[in-house]
């Protein structure tokens, strides 16, 4: 297990999970998982289906009792077992946890009352949330008449209603069309910009890369790695692959580029130069300048970087979507 890394924020973490373990019978669904989330930080739990992400979230939300381990939630040492602690938590479950035979407003009002929001404030807050999730004009319709994307947005809206300190989003884009998915991701980015701490679980590495300040990679109940995207990519030890195609003095350019700063290896075949480069984005401009200086007219550039899929493969020997 990788030791928990705290974010750069010096404020106390909104969530601190330490040595969390949960077994169902002989199967360990979560095994000694630890991590922290700082205020305003977006933390991703990335792993394939069945990795233990939802079980971890269920324990953080108080639905499951851990076999061992400790959860400190928004300053409460007892974690989610304290009702006051749960008031600081917003949960957007993977399944659409809404009543289909109630309207969007009725769903919001129900959960608002459970959160203890005073009636007048709840009316205002429901209007605000309906506006944010773009359902103001359909707020009086039964949610069973909504599209999948609208239901997803309401699902998120309920989690936001009471303005929690930590919002947990459990695979919020599963089964969503690309347009709605992008809308959800933009909403999450907006929430992050507003300073809300987010715990985001997904098995889509693109989402984790796009949204998360730090990512914990989980597999078979254990956290196998944790860090920023760059920190995780460095784990593989692999450099970027850069391919330059063009005409002119390709062989001269190949020789010159082989000695260039950041280049680990270079080879050419008369029209294309293949380079292995440490941190290609940093060196790409100087590499193109070197090629031009040697008389090569570059017509096509292809940069291939290792991604979280490669990291997962490197760490577990399996593909993320296996």
């Amino acid at each position: 297990m990788t030791a928990a890394m705290s974010g750069s924020n010096t404020a106390p973490p909104v969530l601190s999970v330490n040595g969390l373990t949960k077994a169902f019978g002989s199967r360990r669904a979560v095994d000694d998982v630890s991590f922290e989330i700082s205020p305003g930080e977006t933390y991703g739990l990335l792993g394939p289906n069945g990795a233990g992400k939802t079980t971890t979230i269920s324990m953080i939300a108080g639905l499951l009792k851990p076999d061992s381990g400790h959860i400190r939630l928004c300053g409460f040492e007892d974690g989610p077992t304290r009702r006051e602690a749960r008031a600081h938590l917003g949960l957007v479950p993977q399944d659409l946890a809404i009543y289909p035979d109630l309207t969007a407003r009725e769903n919001l009002v129900l959960f608002g009352r459970l959160q203890g929001i005073p009636r007048r404030r709840l009316r205002e807050r429901a209007d605000e949330v309906l506006d944010v999730i773009g359902l103001s004009d359909r707020s009086g319709d039964l949610t069973k008449e909504y599209s999948g994307g609208m239901k997803r947005r309401l699902n998120i809206g309920i989690g936001l209603l009471h303005q929690p300190d930590l919002l947990i989003l459990d695979e919020p884009t599963v089964g969503v069309d690309p347009q709605s998915r992008n809308a959800i991701l933009e909403s999450v980015e907006a929430l992050s910009r507003e300073g809300l701490a987010l715990l985001y679980t997904t098995h889509y590495m693109e989402e984790a890369e796009r949204l998360c300040d730090r990512i914990g990679i989980v597999d078979q109940g254990s956290m196998v790695a944790e860090g920023t995207v760059d920190e995780l990519l460095r784990i593989t030890g692999e450099a970027d692959a850069v391919s330059l195609s063009g005409s002119g003095s390709v062989l001269e350019a190949t020789r010159a580029l082989g000695k260039a700063n950041g280049v680990v290896a270079a080879s050419g075949d008369g029209t294309t130069i293949s380079l292995t480069v440490a941190d290609a984005p940093t060196h790409l401009a100087s590499l193109l300048a070197t090629a031009a200086r040697e008389g090569m007219a570059v017509t096509d550039v292809d940069v291939s970087r290792p991604d979280l899929e490669d990291v997962f493969l490197h760490l577990t020997g399996r593909a993320l979507r296996d």
Binding site: A87, L89, A97, I98, F111
Partner: peptide
Amino acid sequence: QSRELRVTQRELTTPIS
């Protein structure tokens, strides 16, 4: 049905017993 809809579970993550 509330449990199947996961609404019960969500309700239990709010500050209620």
